[in-house]
Design a protein around this nucleic acid. Sequence first.
RNA 1: GGGCUGCUAGCUCAAUGGCAGAGCAUCGGACUUUUAAUCCGCUGGUUCUGGGUUCGAAUCCCAGGCGGCCCA
Length: 485
Amino acid sequence: MTRRFARIDAIRAEGGEPYPYRFDRTHTLAEIRAEHGDLEPGTETGTHVAVAGRVLLIRDGGKLIFATMRDRSAEIQLFVSKAVVGDEPFGEFRQLDLGDWVGVHGIVMTTRKGELSIKVDRFELLSKAVRPLPDKWRGLTDTDTRFRQRYADLIVNEQARRAFQIRHAMISSFRRTLDSHDFIEVETPVLHMEAGGAHARPFVTHHNTLDMPMVLRIALELHLKRLIVGGFERVYEIGRVFRNEGISTRHNPEFTMMELYWAFGDYSEVMAITEELLRNAAQDATGSMVIDVNGTSVDLATPFRRARMIDLIEEQIGVAVHPSMPLDDARLLADEHGVKVNTAWGTGKIIEELFEATAEADLVQPTFVTGHPVEISPLARVDRNDPFLTERFELFVGGREIANGYSELNDPREQRARFEDEQSARDAGDDEAGRVDEDYLRALEYGMPPTGGLGVGMDRVAMLLAGTNSIKEVILFPTLRPEVF
RNA sequence: GGGCUGCUAGCUCAAUGGCAGAGCAUCGGACUUUUAAUCCGCUGGUUCUGGGUUCGAAUCCCAGGCGGCCCA
């Protein structure tokens, strides 16, 4: 770096500017490729262009230099001839370092070998890179460095750039699909008085002027359903939620949820739109509805399987389970299958744990798991055919939970009773359990129409479409321990 | 939280307990059609940190830091 700083001083001493204010380009590199991609080898066009990008490779041939430049759209080769640019500028080009940003003027041409190039007649340094790039061939593989220095990762790793393009295309696709169904997008508070809508520990913060504790939201649900009460009918939000839990390949403390609420429908409409959202997203982000999940081909165009949680467990363990069964029987089954039971758990919670232990990992092909026990679903409506179950589903793909939805509970008195059960669990020591949200109950008392709701873990979908097993690969700046400098 | 595992030059990686090395990058030189250009030459180290064992530690032991994988 010392040498490069010295180079900056030298440029300034000669009256140059290593960090100029702007550069006006005429084309992106992709535009040049689109317009001239089919030139015969050895062609020189009369097309004069101005392009800008980062220099990634330099092949110095004495009086002729080839350099590879990249902008956000594509890469192109620069053809820099001493005879064309002149002796002094040629010498300056030679002083460029890998990583420098340059703007060049020249004509579009192809070399004898047919490589599309810009024959440079003028160039200017746009920004001097003083820190060397990682290895030009092997790149940057150390995961710690890749996530801490995402900028360097994005410079050298095509796969990293691709993952975030897929993520962008997926989110954009979700918005298009929802727009086509006349949903409106809203933004609700991130700072909450109470953490509700999910079973999780919140981040706690403090508002100075009001001198009171606040929490970061753990879900979007309760505010969006207030809007259904308000008459919005179809509403969604794509937003960051925060859960004060462990960090793993599948969990980041802050992650992105999409939640939608659809009045006059129930969980069947919501399952249908879940399939549609995923199909469109796969098509828009990857160009195909067939995705690869750890070597297994998954065709999202095939209607997703639907199966009740209790039936999936029975398939695995050969014994029928139901939330109405005696608690001791449920505990015995849990013990047989290596599930450690907390004494505060009821049968419903044990069934969920049994499901996770025995059935979840096998759900590689898209599967809507339905009929969650009431105990673990405080905001979902009871199944119209079984009072112990709810009209709820979770979508699993590749053994991972992707989405969660249900027919929304809209009876204010039943909701109050469910909240009170949560509060009891909380008082009994479950610090992930919710509390009674009086304002939400007041909203329900004004009347919420029959409604279906959905929550999608957007990072999980991005992982699926990008073909990665770590959530850090689809979050630009994942949460890490502080670096020691 | 537990088990396993990794941390060596800017990057990617070597090195039976016995002189800390290679490739790329950097630096100097040659080259007007290269494609990770090629060729010649030179630099570059708190081996994550702190202890310990040893005549001698990148290597073995202990503690800590930061990752990864698996499990909870």
